[in-house]
Amino acid sequence: TAAPAQEVTLKMHQFLPPQASAPTKVLMPWAERIEAASDGRIKIDHYPAMQLGGKPPELASQVVDGVADIIWTVAGYTPGRFPQAEVFELPFMMTNAEDTSRAFWEYAEANMMDSDFADMKILGVWVHGPGLFHSRKPIEQLSDLNGMKVRGPTRIITGMLGELGATPVGMPVPALPESLSKGVIDAAVVPWEVTQALKIAELVDYHTAFGDEALYTTAFIFAMNKQKFDSLPDDLKAVIDANSGADLSALAGRMMAEADGPALEIAVDRGNTIFDVPPEQVAEWKAAAANVEANWIAEMNEKGFDGQALVDQARALIAKHSQ
């Protein structure tokens, strides 16, 4: 069923609509680079918004089973499946998205390729820009969170919200805008970039960021079906390898963070209040969230990993790439 010029067609499946920043700024440009570098011998069909079927948590299984050839997903959509990736989601772990993503790739190569990622061909791993609070009532002090119903995206972040004194609410993303607009929840944590697609700036009046620090981030996985990759001729494998890895991860992290800017502007234009927690108060937040890291280390130790070593390694790699 292939046209004469192209030898192989790859189905790229992901959960966001095609206009979102990750597909337009990272995934589609990557596909175009691959098509160009292979002289059109590889063609990549993009299926956004789960068009091939299933719910977002199934993407990881889909790429292993070959339902899709390439997927982009959130590691935390399948809690327990990529335990070592969670280290980058720990509170105040990330610095900036580009450096943290480069560190993430190096960490993944050192620890995850034969375990968490054993059944897939990993093309890139990255994180988004700093996550922050978007709320209907102002959050300036830690105590303001007391009694607030806050929605978090993954289990680590939901756990952190509980430690900070909020009432964490686990809720599917599609329910988020409506719940926020009606006050079923008081606040949500997402990066700026996501607020644009979900219209969050129109639904809340307050945003709370942490200056140069980052409350949290989310780990993403960009992967290919292993058998499909192995079935390619060597020169096409080389094309994919040359466009994947540390540089792709760092670039993707940077592009995701750059998409924060326009979304921030929308909130500013609308006259929303954007509060930056002053540096001397950030320590108080860090102390309140410290248990999340301790709990994670204990959990990982139980699973047979050296939790403390993983945390130290992640910190060291981020520091190294932030130079």
Binding site: T78, G80, R81, P83, R155
Partner: peptide, 19 residues
């Protein structure tokens, strides 16, 4: 087969974290 895969990859739910 789906059950076996969920078992193999230790997937849990978000909050209660039951398998």
């Amino acid at each position: 087969l789906g059950l076996l895969a969920k078992m193999r990859y230790n997937e849990t739910t978000y909050l209660l974290q039951f398998p």
